[in-house]
Design a protein around this nucleic acid. Structure first.
Length: 126
DNA sequence: GCTATGACAAGGA
DNA sequence: CTCCTTGCCATAG
């Protein structure tokens, strides 16, 4: 089941310009709740050839927490700001203000289990 | 199969 | 708010 990586790529690519999602949120949308740390791992090892908006993924505290990558937190800060997202000097941002909240149609297209869909509805769609 | 490893998360001090 | 601890889980070896 090496599909995890592919799904992560797929989900991250769905995050719209100017929006962000937490690692845990991506993990949930992938269909594997609580595998947040794994999402980060995938992005970290990703080849430069795969083009995806990795900078739109931050931790659930609303902070940039990139580590062990060829990119620095400030690289990420620049990319986010170029999309109109305000990032404080301490790498903090208002995650709830910019969080990606896909509509039901998008969620259904992911073919997730009922349990996962429930968690998504409860956590990110009030 | 088992252990170690982390771009994490949530809760307690 | 800032540490620290514990839980979790897909990979690599």
């Amino acid at each position: 089941m090496a599909k995890f990586k592919e799904k992560v790529v797929e989900i991250v690519r769905l995050i719209p310009y100017g929006k962000v999602a937490s690692y845990g949120q991506v993990a949930l949308f992938v269909g594997t709740p609580r595998a947040a740390i794994q999402v980060g791992s995938v992005l970290n090892k990703l080849e430069d050839s795969v083009q995806i908006p990795w900078w739109r993924v931050i931790n659930n505290s609303g902070r940039i927490s990139i580590k062990g990558s060829s990119y620095t937190p400030w690289d990420q800060k620049e990319r986010l700001e170029s999309e109109g997202i305000k990032v404080k000097e301490n790498l903090d941002l208002d995650i709830e203000k910019y969080r990606w909240r896909p509509n039901g149609k998008v969620i259904l297209s992911l073919k997730l289990s009922d349990g996962v869909i429930e968690k998504i509805l409860g956590k990110y769609l009030t």
